[in-house]
Amino acid sequence: MDRPAAGSSYQRFPRVRIRELKDDYAKFELRDTDASIANALRRVMIAEVPTVAIDLVEIEVNSSVLNDEFIAHRLGLIPLTSAAAMQMRFSRDCDACDGDGSCEYCSVEFNLSARATDSDQTLEVTSNDLRSADPKVCPVDQARAYQLALSGNDYDPNAERGILIVKLRRGQELRLRAIARKGIGKDHAKWSPAATVTFMYEPDILINEELMDTLTFDEKRSWVESSPTKVFDLSANGKVTVCDAEAYTYDDEVIKKAEAMGKPGLVEINAKEDSFIFTVETTGAITAYELIMNAITVLRQKLDAIGLQDDDGDLGELGAHLGGP
């Protein structure tokens, strides 16, 4: 058997094409790699890219209808701007403090103080009422409102409204101190920067033109309409074309329909094993581009950590005796 000498590289050189890139949304094609890499990227984006989220809440006064832990949980789920999270420390391995989350390297303090005065309206306490001690880390709605105000763009009521925490009736009060820490989605989903991350195999659709010509116009139409999503198009002169290959959901409906019509092999659909179409959506804590880049960085850090050290093995007598390199 001919085998190349050990030590040669089997590295791949993946290609990327960005289709759409917005602040919190990205769609891109990833080619010349395999599903394991695509899935590893997806998994890291969801569970291992760090962000900052409220983790510790000290309630001073809470006379609202929600109990303390309910409010603490709601505060934790508010996305905070986390562009600095990659450079921050986890509070469990922060030397400057005892991991109690009270130093600038690993935590950010927030204060909230709200009281419904004697008007008849209920007071809505939102993420906009949170006061951050560090301007880099604040609720994403506050950051967006600030950006809009800076650019002098038209007023966006959604950005101003914030995320509702609790509603207060006349006389009720909420006062608390919260500490936000760096964390990852594996620990708790509140730290996940990803809203959705998905990838699909790019489909390769081949119509057997010869067989297609044997169909009548009505047959063609019923075949084209058998697809639950709009994948094929039928022109007035009876030509069937693929109009949107990616709309195909691998449901096999058109293949079954062709068989039912007595025309097996009318269309051949294969998933390209080395082409993936990714859709990435973030919570706003970091941008979609940052999420992708940070995911690659985190995955590389993981690979660096699993490299072999000199003293890892069991190069004892037994191993040496049984022969090896």
């Binding site: 590289s9 590295q11 791949r12 993946p14 790699t33 690659i296 590389r300 690979l303």
Partner: peptide, 11 residues
Amino acid sequence: NDLDKELEYLK
């Protein structure tokens, strides 16, 4: 090592 280089290239 190959995976690390692939990701470096991808970045």
